[in-house]
Design a protein around this nucleic acid. Structure first.
Lengths: 268, 268
DNA sequence: CGAAGAGTTGACCTTAGTCAATACCCGTGG
DNA sequence: CCACGGGTATTGACTAAGGTCAACTCTTCG
């Protein structure tokens, strides 16, 4: 295992200080420094602050906190929770290693949501003002940063699609497929992984109740598409899940084997 | 009325060419050039391409189109439609004058949605590559651009909250209040305006059916909160709508006048 | 005038939420 | 060791919110 944080002895306090290094990090092709040459990556390393350990259930930042840093997740998982003024909370996303936290705060200089660790995790602190200084010297970095922000927008809009259009089964399938592909991109198994979040979190994220999630898990299990043991899940029929996630008409067709003649993608 | 586009005679074709000018535009305090001094605004003007007229129902861009420009809405209204792979469409937003279109396309160099004019409209074309060049010379502009992107993220996440947590009545109230405040910010009446979109569009956006929208309009009318005539709406009780939009517990309280003693904002 | 499109309203039905009982896991302490 | 309690998950029975289907109106446009 590579150790992307080198432990330096703090001269005064004699406690280990975590010093991040993009160059030594296995995620640099997924994360902010993507596409940078060694020289530029070095410059980025210079501004990146000390790493932070965040233990399970701890908040990296809270809604209303002043905005200073973006955070790149080194390892671990987070959820971001928005609170409506009425007090109900909505989980707007689950983030994993290599992803950036805090971009929602740029617009108003304070955070709009809570970021909560789902397990013991570690993040790199990226002072945003220094990052902005760097942008004028490294156009590649700027461009990539814009891609990341834009990606976040696209992702959110896909969730809107999910919440606005899909029925429970489809939402849940889409959720599983999404997790699956993100683990794949990180070099993990796309078919066997653990839920880092509770059923309640999943339900909240998908706009469903905890009971519905439970029932969906059971139903998918009975149908032979997955096997579950607590938070351990094995996807047994990924193509089927993708089909369900993709949606409705097409899935209905194949399910009922009806009218394979007429073009399935008829206008709605 | 100020005319932000000056008509120049095209030397060859002798047709009027629309030349945009931020300095002369009434929206420059809402739009991209916000906070720029005159010199910088001039530099921005230099890169802004010709204006485009988009007539009602026409598409400014389509999903899959290569990404070249961002577009600032000069006047008129747009909707952005995502298509799921399954073919169902979801309207992810309604945009009005002073807002930027196309930011979702930065991540992959092609557009992820269709932008459709809800009425005859006009946009300024902003070549993104030239804008990025400008960023290194005008940090203020870059910073503001980041705020705009971040705002888009926040806004999308608020819609997620709406779709994930709110019930029909609350969604619709939130929708009305949102429109109201955006018109206010543009100097229009916050209580009397026209829907630029059909009931179907509203329903699609809010994750409800057209029939539900119709019923909600009727019910709000009967309760005396609004008056509607086709697409003309007058908000008669904005505070009430805000209360409903804000949500649940608080609204329930006042509605039923029950237990005004216990703190309404109890933990969920 | 007739046809098409948009909107309204009513009757009925389905999906997922609510409520409640129960199971299971795990850490604590007698 | 087992009992206890709290958090988490599963399952069932019932309900309600909103979807579906259908009839009808109104407006617009050719």
């Amino acid at each position: 295992m590579n150790t992307p944080f080198s432990k330096l002895a703090s001269p005064l306090l004699n406690i280990p200080v975590l010093k991040a290094s993009c160059a030594g990090c296995s995620l640099h092709q997924l994360c902010l420094p993507m596409g940078l040459d060694n020289a530029d990556m070095g410059r980025l390393d210079q501004i990146i602050g000390r790493g932070q350990r965040i233990s399970r259930d701890q908040r990296l930042y809270r809604m209303g906190d002043p905005f200073k840093n973006l955070y790149a997740i080194r390892f671990g998982h987070f959820k971001t929770c928005h609170m409506s003024n009425g007090g109900e909370e909505q989980i707007t996303g689950f983030q994993m290693a290599g992803e950036l936290l805090g971009m929602d705060a740029i617009s108003s200089d304070h955070h709009h949501c809570d970021a909560i660790a789902l397990e013991d995790s570690e993040v790199c602190e990226i002072p945003f003002s220094r990052l902005e200084e760097l942008f004028s010297h490294i156009p590649t970095l700027l461009h990539h940063f814009h891609r990341i922000m834009s990606q976040e927008i696209t992702r959110d809009q896909n969730v809107m699609l999910l919440l606005g259009n899909m029925r429970a089964e489809q939402r849940f399938a889409a959720f599983l497929v999404n997790l699956s592909s993100r683990y794949l991109a990180r070099g993990y198994s796309s078919t066997s992984f653990q839920f880092r979040m509770s059923r309640e979190d999943i339900g909240n994220y998908l706009g469903l109740t905890i009971e519905s999630i439970s029932r969906l898990l059971s139903s998918f299990r009975v149908k032979g598409w997955i096997s579950v043991d607590k938070r351990e899940i094995h996807i047994l029929d990924l193509p089927k899940l993708k089909e369900i996630a993709l949606g409705s008409e097409l899935a209905m067709m194949t399910k009922k084997d009806c009218k394979p003649v007429a073009p399935a993608i008829a206008k709605t």
